[in-house]
């Protein structure tokens, strides 16, 4: 399809979004990532029944934790699509990148020595 999406998105592949843990997302932000988002299958279509629902819950938890420490909770987001939706994947990458640019860089980044 030769789709383009912003090159600043670093993809980490997992077998199912149910594998993504709160600490994976939190550590990304802690280490200076400006944002983190999970792209899971559409709700109701998880091969493992509830992997993407668990991920959604964990993303919400991370959003709460980020607010607690004084960062924007919206630096973490959850998106859903089916595996056949390449264009939607690129669309979400663009949307997330634009959204994060609006929020600005992660303030923790400049504090790291």
């Amino acid at each position: 399809m030769r789709l383009e999406y912003p090159p600043n998105v670093k993809i980490i592949r997992v077998p199912c979004t149910g594998k993504v843990d709160v600490m994976h997302m939190l550590r990304a932000i802690q280490k200076g990532a400006d944002g983190v988002y999970c792209v899971g299958c559409l709700e109701g279509t998880c091969h493992y029944n509830e992997g993407n629902l668990r991920c959604r819950e964990r993303v919400n938890h991370v959003r709460m934790l980020l607010e607690e420490v004084g960062l924007e909770g919206d630096r973490a987001r959850m998106y859903n699509l089916s595996s056949g939706e390449g264009p939607t994947f690129a669309e979400y990458a663009k949307e997330m990148t634009a959204h994060i640019k609006e929020l600005g860089p992660n303030p923790l980044k400049k504090m790291d020595t």
Binding site: L26, Q30, L65, V69, G70, L108, M111
Partner: peptide
């Protein structure tokens, strides 16, 4: 696990402060 999460939170919050 909860130790990991809280420690990461404290680290970030104190840096921001």
């Amino acid at each position: 696990k909860e130790v990991d999460v809280l420690t990461a939170e404290l680290d970030m919050a104190r840096k921001l402060d």
